[in-house]
Simulated assay, not measured.
Amino acid sequence: MSFFSKIFKSKSKDSKLKVLGKLAFLEVDMHNHILPGIDDGSQSLEQSIHLLKGLKYMGFDKFICTPHIMDGMYPNNRQIIQQSKQILQEELNRRADKPIIFAAAEHMIDDNLARLVQNNGLCVMPGGYVLIEMSYLQESKALFQTILDIQNLGYQPILAHPERYNYYHYNFNVYKQIKDAGCMLQLNLLSISRYYGVEVKSAALTMIKSGMYDFVGTDLHHNRHLMALEDVVGKYPVRDLLSTCPILNSSLQNHLKNDFEIIETAYV
């Protein structure tokens, strides 16, 4: 091994050690795309295992998998998501130190979501939470009606990564309106860096300072996200930064235990 290779290897090892267990305080990653082969996240079982290993190294050992349900692009449903989850679960069962995974979804606010609400076909997280998202290109006019419709079913909506909706950056009061409507907010961890851009970082930090976030997720799709997340976790004091927000991730582990058998049976 050359002198420079030794230096590089040493730096890489030191960088890894900087992130070891740093996200353990969150306990549950409640937004990710690590189920294999059903959306723009993990494309194979091997990739899913690799991503899980990386997140586990940073401290996560429980995962709520949230593949997209998006009309015309990712036509997933409970059965498709459960099948992908089962493939991953069977592989994990062969391993001694396996994480706990649960299948839900990230629902795009579109015509299909309206049908899912009407037919009670939502993919619900433990605790009765439903993760929703909007297009990055334009605001959904159905947002507040969707929030109400989900609540009327007895579930609690969570809006994914609100800091990434650029059309709200110049109307910051809308975040308060969403919260006042009873919708919780979820931060993407990569948003505290400039991964998605300076404006997204600025919005995320402002919302953190205002104590507006309820949950944190990795929104992990692929290895580039994993490497970027390792850089963020090594560079930023994530736990201290989030101390202004009543982050509820750790409460999900109790729901995971209580709801697992009930919801899993309903999805079969």
Rank of each mutant, 00 (worst) to 15 (best):
D231W: 05
E133I: 06
L248E: 13
K13I: 11
N76S: 06
R224C: 08
D214W: 02
A228K: 12
N77W: 06
G59Q: 10
Y136A: 12
A142G: 01
Q86W: 00
A203K: 12
H222I: 10
G234T: 05
R115G: 01
F215P: 01
D219N: 15
Q47P: 01
D61A: 03
D259I: 00
I263E: 01
G234E: 08
D29N: 08
G72F: 03
V130E: 05
I178F: 04
V232T: 15
R164A: 09
A160V: 09
L26K: 05
S193E: 05
H107D: 01
M227P: 00
Y168A: 03
V130I: 06
Y267K: 13
Q82H: 11
L148F: 15
N152L: 15
A105T: 08
V130Y: 07
K98Q: 14
E91W: 00
N171A: 13
L45F: 06
F102Y: 10
S191R: 03
L143E: 04
N223M: 14
V216P: 05
R78H: 10
I263V: 12
I158W: 06
A114H: 11
R94Q: 15
L88E: 03
G182L: 12
I49L: 15
L88H: 05
N76M: 04
Y175T: 06
A203V: 12
V19G: 08
N76W: 02
M212S: 06
D180I: 06
Q47H: 04
N119M: 10
F60M: 07
S15L: 13
F172N: 07
F215Y: 14
G197W: 01
D97V: 02
V268R: 09
S44Y: 09
L92K: 04
T206W: 04
I208K: 00
H161W: 09
Q86N: 13
S84P: 04
L241D: 11
L185P: 10
A142T: 05
F144I: 08
H222Q: 11
Q89L: 15
D14I: 15
I247E: 08
L220H: 00
P246L: 06
T244L: 09
N76G: 02
K22L: 12
I100S: 10
Q82S: 14
D110N: 07
A114C: 10
V238E: 03
D219Y: 04
E264L: 00
F172E: 14
H68T: 09
P162I: 01
L88A: 06
T244E: 14
E91K: 15
K62V: 00
K209H: 14
E106D: 13
A142H: 13
K13M: 11
K11S: 10
L159F: 11
K18W: 02
H255F: 12
Q177R: 14
I132A: 08
L220T: 08
S250V: 09
E106L: 02
V174G: 03
L55I: 02
F144Q: 08
V174H: 10
D110L: 00
L45K: 02
Q156S: 14
N173D: 14
I247F: 07
E90L: 11
N76R: 03
G121A: 14
Q186E: 14
G41P: 02
R115N: 13
L226G: 08
V117G: 00
N112W: 05
A24L: 08
V124G: 04
I263A: 04
